[in-house]
Amino acid sequence: RGFLEKAAVKKMAKAIMADPNKADEVYKKWADKGYTLTQMSNFLKSKTAGKYDRVYNGYVIHLD
């Protein structure tokens, strides 16, 4: 289950990176699912340092 969630989160993160207008909708879905910042950090780990920082930081702001 965790692997599928991670894959889904990364897919949506890539969608945000391609079209930032989708961010609020995606952040709301993640918040509704109760994803914590720790979970998001783990889901968005990448071999490329900083690749998903913008998405993660946007989610931090959304939760605030």
Rank of each mutant, 00 (worst) to 15 (best):
R1P: 15
R1W: 05
R1T: 14
R1M: 13
R1S: 14
R1Q: 14
R1C: 15
R1E: 13
G2H: 15
G2Q: 13
G2E: 14
G2R: 13
G2N: 13
F3P: 10
F3V: 10
F3M: 10
F3R: 14
F3Y: 14
L4C: 15
L4F: 13
L4E: 11
L4V: 11
E5M: 07
K6N: 07
K6G: 10
K6L: 09
K6A: 14
K6F: 09
A7Y: 13
A7C: 15
A7H: 12
A7M: 14
A8N: 10
A8Y: 12
A8G: 09
A8H: 12
A8R: 14
A8T: 12
V9K: 01
V9L: 04
V9T: 02
V9G: 01
V9N: 02
K10G: 03
K10I: 15
K11S: 08
K11V: 08
K11Q: 11
K11D: 07
K11T: 07
K11W: 07
M12P: 01
M12N: 06
M12I: 04
M12H: 05
M12D: 15
M12A: 11
M12G: 07
A13R: 02
A13E: 00
A13Q: 01
A13H: 00
A13Y: 02
A13W: 03
K14I: 08
K14E: 13
K14Y: 07
K14H: 09
K14S: 09
A15R: 09
A15G: 05
A15T: 10
A15H: 07
I16Q: 00
I16A: 06
I16E: 00
I16Y: 01
I16C: 05
M17G: 02
M17S: 04
A18C: 15
A18H: 11
A18S: 11
D19C: 14
D19I: 03
D19S: 06
D19H: 06
D19W: 06
D19M: 05
P20N: 06
P20T: 05
N21L: 11
N21W: 10
N21D: 10
K22N: 07
A23H: 05
A23W: 02
D24I: 10
D24P: 14
D24W: 08
D24Q: 13
D24N: 11
E25S: 09
E25N: 07
V26I: 14
V26Y: 08
V26D: 00
V26E: 03
V26R: 02
Y27G: 00
Y27H: 01
Y27M: 02
K28S: 10
K29G: 08
K29Y: 13
W30D: 00
W30I: 00
A31H: 13
A31E: 08
A31F: 08
D32S: 11
D32F: 08
D32E: 14
D32T: 10
D32V: 09
K33S: 11
K33M: 13
K33T: 10
K33F: 10
G34Y: 03
G34W: 03
G34S: 04
G34R: 05
G34D: 03
G34N: 06
Y35P: 00
Y35F: 06
Y35N: 00
Y35Q: 00
T36Q: 03
T36S: 09
L37K: 10
L37C: 07
L37V: 09
T38I: 12
T38R: 11
T38W: 11
T38P: 10
Q39K: 05
Q39C: 08
Q39Y: 03
M40G: 01
M40R: 00
M40N: 00
M40L: 12
M40V: 11
M40D: 00
M40E: 00
M40T: 02
S41N: 09
S41M: 10
S41P: 01
N42P: 01
N42R: 13
F43Q: 02
F43L: 08
F43T: 03
L44H: 00
L44D: 01
K45M: 11
K45L: 10
K45R: 11
S46V: 07
S46E: 07
S46N: 06
K47N: 12
K47Q: 09
K47T: 13
K47S: 11
T48D: 10
T48R: 10
T48C: 12
T48A: 08
A49Q: 11
G50R: 06
G50W: 04
G50D: 06
G50C: 08
G50M: 05
G50T: 07
G50Q: 05
K51S: 05
K51C: 07
K51D: 05
K51P: 05
K51V: 08
K51I: 09
K51N: 05
K51F: 11
K51Y: 14
Y52R: 01
Y52S: 02
Y52W: 07
Y52K: 01
Y52P: 01
Y52I: 02
D53A: 08
D53C: 11
D53Y: 06
D53S: 07
R54C: 15
R54E: 15
V55E: 02
V55C: 03
V55K: 01
V55W: 02
Y56L: 14
Y56F: 13
Y56T: 03
Y56M: 09
Y56E: 02
Y56W: 06
N57R: 12
N57M: 12
N57S: 09
N57F: 13
G58E: 05
G58S: 03
Y59A: 01
Y59I: 02
V60L: 09
I61F: 08
I61G: 07
H62A: 06
H62G: 02
H62Q: 03
H62D: 01
L63V: 05
L63Y: 03
L63K: 03
D64H: 13
D64I: 15
D64K: 15
